[in-house]
């Protein structure tokens, strides 16, 4: 499947939320309602960067109750490859952007008997939508938000106002920090765990849950991995007959797109498998950074997820 047609949007409002996070309110340029969506969905925002088009996924924070606008929150990344910096520095009310239709790779399990949501930092954005959906349902839920300090906890305070009994806030300063082991210890059967936050937090929560006997089917996470930078490498696209160079700061998928070749994608974070591409020839090593392919598939070297993975090679030929 080729990428979905994008929806032109205009930025209605930009509000600082914390020292690092800004909230953007987007509306369709033509004034029509935006597509309905389910809690946990994201859109990919297409930004007209100076040097190249930037595409970053951001979770939708509200609900389908009001489809006149979407709200997203963007944290300025210290290691920004351009996307979050563009959003913070170049986007103002009236700016024009484009978004893909919503895709949900982090939905709530509809048969869960209880929902346990853990988030850290800007990972609160999908959880914001989850909580707004859960307050209308009959299933019990519990939310734990981690933040550096109270000035970084604005979105968590918002959630606590919506569901005072269900939302706990844990601040690094003054502490105490989130005690994941204690939170996971006494959860009733049928609880589903959702975690979104920095990579280290996700890994820690998953490891703690596994150690406490949680089965994989009850553990859900979403991680928006920025594509890692690396050494430049050259790629031949056999179907389109093009030869491209992937610069250090650009992902393979972005380089393919920049060459004018349509390539499928959904998450742009190595999780969904949509951009899977067949490797036709390789002289060198694939540097897999995705969580989609199994260890065996990665070792086989016959396919790659170009949204996050790279290569250290003399030759790479892709079926694209």
């Amino acid at each position: 499947m080729t990428p979905a047609a994008t929806i032109p949007v205009v930025v209605r409002e930009v509000r600082p939320v914390t020292p690092l996070i800004r909230r953007f309110t987007l509306a369709r340029e033509d004034g029509l309602p935006l597509p309905a969506f389910s809690a946990g969905a994201h859109v990919v925002v297409v930004m007209p960067g100076a040097a190249r088009t930037l595409r970053n996924p951001y979770s939708l924070m509200g609900t389908s109750a009001d489809l006149s606008t979407y709200d997203i929150a963007v944290r300025l990344s210290e290691t920004s490859r351009g996307g979050s910096r563009f959003m913070h520095e170049a986007v103002a009310p009236g700016s024009k952007l484009a978004i893909t239709p919503p895709v949900n790779l982090f939905p709530l399990d509809k048969l869960a008997r209880r929902h346990l949501l853990l988030c850290g930092g800007v990972g609160i954005t999908p959880v914001s939508a989850h909580v707004r959906e859960l307050v209308h349902g009959g299933v019990p839920f519990e939310v734990h938000c981690g933040a550096r300090s109270i000035e970084h906890a604005t979105l968590a305070l918002e959630l606590r106002a919506i569901a005072p009994d269900a939302v706990a806030i844990h601040l690094d300063t003054p502490g105490p920090t989130m005690d994941v082991e204690a939170i996971l210890a006494e959860q009733p059967l049928g609880t589903h765990l959702y975690v979104c936050g920095p990579g280290g937090m996700i890994e820690n929560v998953i490891a703690t849950a596994r150690a406490a006997g949680w089965p994989e089917s009850h553990i859900h996470w979403e991680r928006f991995t920025a594509p890692p930078a690396g050494k430049p490498f050259e790629v031949t696209l056999s179907r389109s007959g093009k030869r491209i160079t992937v610069p250090p700061e650009m992902s393979l998928l972005e380089a393919i797109e920049a060459a004018g070749v349509d390539a499928p994608f959904l998450c742009r974070g190595g999780a969904c498998g949509q951009c899977e591409t067949t490797v036709l020839a390789l002289d060198g090593t694939l540097l897999h950074h995705d969580v989609y392919l199994s260890a065996d598939q990665k070792a086989a070297g016959d396919r790659i997820m170009p949204c996050v993975s790279r290569a250290d090679c003399r030759t790479l030929v892709l079926d694209r």
């Binding site: 499947m1 969506f37 959904l266």
Partner: peptide, 11 residues
């Protein structure tokens, strides 16, 4: 199944 799990809205 793999294909349908990624079926997109509006497509």
């Amino acid at each position: 199944l793999k294909f349908l799990l990624n079926l997109q809205l509006g497509r």
